[in-house]
Design a protein around this nucleic acid. Structure first.
Lengths: 201, 201, 201, 201
DNA sequence: AATGAATGAGATTTCATTCAT
DNA sequence: GATGAATGAAATCTCATTCAT
């Protein structure tokens, strides 16, 4: 009898819950969380967007924080293993996909909310990390490891710092106000992999 | 060397501003902005921390957003040109300094707030970018350009993507929950500069 | 004579409204509006007088202006058709009733608030006009028209200016600091109807 | 050693006050009082409009109420004895002038403010009555008395109720939303004087 | 005298949460 | 389970007034 999140209410007996409402609530929450941030998002707005009453939300999630955490837990970062190609292209596709996620639907603001709320509600960053950050890193790491195993990268390559550098460069560009383009993605890959790494294979 | 008009003439009419209050207000604002985020920061708390009344704050900054923007505008990212050393060490010192800024005083949460508020109050990110992000990037870029000019980096090196990769890696590590250490800084530098770049000079 | 659908079906879902609160809110608003004027009336005072929380008021009326307008809309000027008598007496009763409304419960101050707020919140005067001014005028006009039709007033009499003169005289007296008495009401009627109009019928 | 208003500060010794400022303050006060009402008028706005500082206002008038009362005390209702003509025309000119005063510069709202504030600040209505209401009534009464003395009105005519009816009709029309026109002024006079009073002389 | 600075005391409005059907 | 009603606890911003030159 364990609970994944102790503020998440469980329904066990009695009338079953209207099934579509759960998803509507979480979708609305995620959208508003990104658009307005955690603090500015109101339960009234979530209820309106989801087409339910506020009390219904509280029936499922005891607090606003629990609701937000659950919504982040519902994130599904498509692992999107990019179709094979040479390594540079493969990595650039990864970065383009990441940049797209950042710019569509206020993805960068969503990251910002999780970071901003960390001192107050660390569960947000925890869920975001587990469901969005780490899966994406894993996909990118797998690509790098495959490349290393087939000799396209030096055998001594440690993939984690490379993952951080590649993905971090995209968000650092956003923070600096530098627009992301397919060309900039390739430039990032080139800068990180270094000129000595041959572009083929 | 005397005043052209009248030395006894006060610079401005009326009661002079209580000195130090301006700084106290901005300092308190910045601290609370980082600790609690823009939305959760209250003017009451700022006033209490700064030792002034709320009305005094409003006298100088018409709105909460203006206050926050001014506080961010007061950020002074010390350019900290690290003392000379071999390039890897020089860059690692840069990254350590950046990591220190991120972890002390909730620097990462401060970035998060600016990102989270961007859809609603873009001035925050704008000021943060100008006064914190770009100065740090400039310092790091200067280091890279000096290295390129003395031959420690290939002549064709484009510094901007390298800056993004190096600084971005630090924040990406934080986002992924990877602790920063002096060793991890060196690993990041090694990964980004590549093995082909000699570690000396 | 049964319900078409289902008698057990509640009229509306959710918790039913606490009965009487609506009336308590509007009554308190009207009283405070008259006593203190729109600008000086506070929602706190209304809530206290009505025995509800401020938020409950805001639940029903989005803004203070909407609340005040609704309260004025609830005014019910009893048409008070005075019992038959000779015309002079009938009109004097009208004026006495109007004077009573002006002096009891700060009626004159209520008019003043509506006039004072007109540049800023014209809805107040609009509602007051529709629910208090025009009904009273209509009642008085009806009296005059009946008198004209039975020959107690010349056939060519235009009732509207007479209505304005009769009612206006009462408020003009108040503005001038002249106390209203039954005698002064008769004097007003006599002055307006003129000596040539016989006092009987 | 009497003071006309005990909140009005008197300057007796020391540096004389800048003379033009007094008038600027009172003019600005009167204009804002009419435009916004007493409660909504802010001393900041008065100070800005008058080109002085708030503290300067408080130097002369201890409270906001004293300032408003003083401004109303400065009202000068031009007695405007209308040029001779037949009585109906003479009175209609009076009414037109009054209506003009009501509609220009928010005169009706100014009356409203004085009435609305009467429970809280009776000095406003008192000053307004003395400096605006009574002078106008006196001018109109004089006209009526002259007419009575020359036989254009019955010898037994009591002028006060007529004054109230004539002036009151104009404000009652405003309250009812009836526009004032020169024609409506004549209709009012005709209604009040009655058909039996000949229109000539 | 005149003025800019400073402030205490609110006022309106918002919102997460609980209640009563 | 679902919902509308109700509310306590703020939060931002305003303003008349006083203070220190």
């Amino acid at each position: 009898m364990r609970s994944t999140d102790n503020d998440r209410c469980r329904a066990t007996a009695g009338r079953p819950r209207c099934p579509g409402k759960q998803a509507a609530i979480l979708d609305a929450t995620l959208a508003l969380l990104a658009q307005q941030g955690f603090a500015r998002m109101t339960l009234d707005a979530v209820a309106r967007a989801a087409g339910v009453s506020k009390a219904t939300i509280h029936l499922r999630y005891r607090t606003k924080a629990a609701l937000a955490a659950a919504a982040l837990g519902g994130l599904r970062t498509c692992a999107t293993p990019p179709p094979a190609a040479d390594l540079h292209t493969e990595l650039a596709i990864h970065l383009d996909d990441f940049a797209h996620a950042l710019h569509s639907n206020h993805g960068m603001a969503l990251i910002g909310t999780c970071l901003a709320e960390e001192p107050h509600t660390p569960a947000l960053l925890r869920h975001f990390r587990e469901h969005a950050v780490l899966p994406r890193r894993a996909a990118l790491r797998a690509t790098l490891e495959r490349a290393r195993d087939r000799g396209a990268l030096p055998a001594c390559t440690d993939p984690e710092p490379l993952v951080s550098a590649l993905l971090g460069a995209v968000s650092a560009d956003h923070l600096a106000g530098r627009a992301h383009t397919p060309d900039s993605a390739r430039a990032t890959v080139r800068a990180v992999l270094g000129l000595c790494v041959s572009d083929d294979r």
